[in-house]
Computed example of a mutant assay.
Amino acid sequence: ARCRELGVPVIHVHFLVHPGAPGFTLNAPLFEGLLDESAMVRGTWGARAVDGLEPQPGDHVVEKMRMSAWEGTSLETVLKAEGRDILIETGAWTNMSIEHTARTGADKGYVMVIPEDGCSTMNADWHRASIDYAMQNVALVTKVDEVIGALA
C-alpha cells in the first residue's frame, strides 16, 4: 500500500500453468511435484492470489513457470518501462523463488532488497538458511518496517 501511495510500481509475479501443464519442463523434483498435485493451475483455487494481496488497478502482473521471476517472463521489460533498477522482493518460497530471483537480479545489475519478514517458505530452517547465507551475498536483507521507513 505504501509503494502505491508513493507511485512505486507494484509487480505481482504469479506461478501459473495451464491444465495438464503443457510446455512445462519436468527437470526438477519441485516441478514434478507441481504436476503430480495439479498445483498452480490457472483458474483454480491453488493459483489464486492470497486474500488481501490481489493485484490492484495500476499494478503489473508477471506470469512465470520457473523458480526465478526473470526466466521466460516480462519482468525486465516492465522494470525498464518503469525506469527501475532497485527491486523490493517479497513473497513465498524464500529459498526458491525469492532466492533465485534475487540471485539473477543481482547478476543483471539490479539492487535487490529482501525484507526477510515479508518472505516465507516451508519451514524456518529453509528460510533462515536462505536469509542468513545465500541472500547475504546478493541482496540487502532488511525488515519490512525499515523498507517502509526508507520509502518515506
Rank of each mutant, 00 (worst) to 15 (best):
2 R>L: 08
3 C>D: 04
6 L>N: 04
7 G>Q: 06
7 G>P: 02
8 V>N: 02
12 H>Y: 09
12 H>R: 01
13 V>T: 13
19 P>Y: 00
22 P>C: 12
29 P>T: 05
31 F>K: 10
32 E>P: 00
33 G>H: 14
34 L>M: 14
38 S>Y: 03
40 M>S: 12
40 M>T: 10
44 T>V: 05
45 W>L: 14
47 A>G: 14
48 R>L: 10
49 A>M: 14
53 L>C: 10
55 P>N: 10
57 P>V: 07
59 D>F: 01
60 H>P: 09
60 H>K: 08
64 K>V: 11
65 M>E: 13
69 A>T: 01
71 E>S: 04
73 T>I: 00
73 T>H: 07
75 L>C: 03
76 E>R: 05
77 T>K: 13
81 A>N: 13
88 I>R: 03
91 G>S: 04
92 A>E: 12
93 W>K: 07
95 N>A: 12
98 I>P: 13
98 I>D: 07
98 I>G: 15
98 I>T: 13
99 E>Y: 04
101 T>M: 02
102 A>P: 08
102 A>S: 15
104 T>V: 15
106 A>T: 09
111 V>D: 10
118 G>H: 06
119 C>Y: 06
124 A>S: 07
126 W>R: 13
128 R>F: 07
129 A>M: 14
131 I>H: 03
134 A>C: 09
134 A>S: 14
138 V>E: 02
139 A>E: 00
144 V>C: 11
145 D>P: 10
146 E>R: 13
146 E>Q: 09
149 G>F: 03
149 G>L: 05
